[in-house]
Measured scan of single mutants.
Amino acid sequence: DEFHFHWNGRDIRVRGDSEELRRLIEAIKRGELSEEEIERAIEILER
């Protein structure tokens, strides 16, 4: 699976399928994380 979302003017695409990944992306979409937490998560996910 590939998750695709927009954040902070960026087009983010992440491959993978796990419950943890889904929860993280939902939290990002709901605005539950700080900008710094989101940046760090995206860096890890894009590897």
Rank of each mutant, 00 (worst) to 15 (best):
D11H: 08
L24N: 01
L21N: 15
H4M: 14
E2Q: 07
R23C: 07
E2W: 12
G9E: 03
E35R: 09
R23M: 14
R23N: 14
E39M: 08
R40N: 12
S18Q: 09
K29F: 11
G9T: 01
H6C: 04
E36C: 03
D17W: 08
F3R: 03
I28F: 05
I12K: 00
A41W: 14
D1S: 09
L24H: 02
E20Y: 08
G9S: 02
R10Q: 06
E37D: 11
E43G: 04
S18M: 06
I12G: 00
G9I: 00
S18P: 07
I12Y: 15
R22H: 11
I38E: 04
E19M: 10
V14L: 06
E20H: 08
S18I: 08
R40S: 10
D1V: 13
R40Y: 12
G16E: 08
D17S: 08
E20P: 11
N8K: 14
E2L: 07
G9L: 00
I28S: 01
D11M: 10
E32Y: 10
E2R: 03
E35S: 13
A27V: 08
A27H: 08
I44E: 14
R47I: 15
H6D: 04
K29D: 09
R15G: 10
E32K: 07
E19Y: 09
V14H: 03
R40Q: 14
H4W: 12
D11S: 05
R30D: 11
W7S: 01
I44H: 09
R15H: 15
I42V: 09
K29N: 12
I44R: 07
E37L: 04
L21P: 03
R23K: 13
R30M: 14
D11W: 12
E2F: 13
F3W: 11
L45R: 00
K29P: 02
G16M: 03
G16F: 05
E37N: 04
I38D: 00
E37F: 04
L33K: 03
E39S: 08
V14N: 01
E39Y: 06
S18R: 09
E19C: 03
E39V: 08
I38Y: 03
D1H: 11
I28L: 07
N8T: 01
I42C: 01
I44N: 08
E19L: 07
R23Q: 14
D17E: 10
L24T: 04
S34Q: 06
G31A: 07
E26I: 11
I25Q: 04
R30W: 09
E36H: 09
G16N: 06
L45C: 00
G16T: 09
A27S: 13
E39N: 08
S18N: 12
A27D: 12
I42Y: 04
I44M: 09
E39W: 06
S18F: 05
I44C: 06
E36G: 09
A41N: 04
G9K: 01
R13Q: 13
E37W: 03
E39P: 03
F3C: 03
R23S: 13
I42D: 00
I28A: 03
R30P: 00
E19Q: 12
R30E: 12
L24W: 06
I28D: 00
R47G: 15
L33N: 02
I44T: 08
F3I: 10
E2V: 09
L33C: 04
I28H: 03
R47Q: 15
L24V: 06
V14C: 02
D11N: 06
F3S: 03
R30A: 15
E46D: 10
E26R: 12
D17C: 03
R47L: 15
S34F: 04
R23A: 15
R40V: 11
E36N: 08
S18H: 07
F5G: 00
L45Q: 01
R10N: 04
L33G: 02
L24R: 00
V14P: 03
F5Y: 05
I28Y: 05
F5N: 00
D17R: 04
E32I: 12
R13C: 11
E20N: 08
G9D: 05
I12A: 00
H6M: 10
R10P: 00
F5D: 00
F5A: 00
E36F: 09
F3Q: 03
D1M: 12
L45G: 01
E36A: 13
R47K: 15
R15K: 15
S18W: 06
V14W: 05
R22V: 14
R10E: 04
E43V: 06
E35M: 11
A27E: 10
L21W: 12
H4R: 09
H4V: 15
E19K: 09
E26T: 11
L21S: 14
F3L: 10
S34L: 05
D1A: 10
A27W: 09
H6T: 12
A27M: 13
W7L: 05
L24D: 00
E43P: 03
E2A: 07
V14S: 02
E43I: 06
G16K: 05
E37Y: 03
E35F: 13
E2Y: 13
R47E: 15
I42G: 00
L33Y: 07
E26S: 12
K29Q: 13
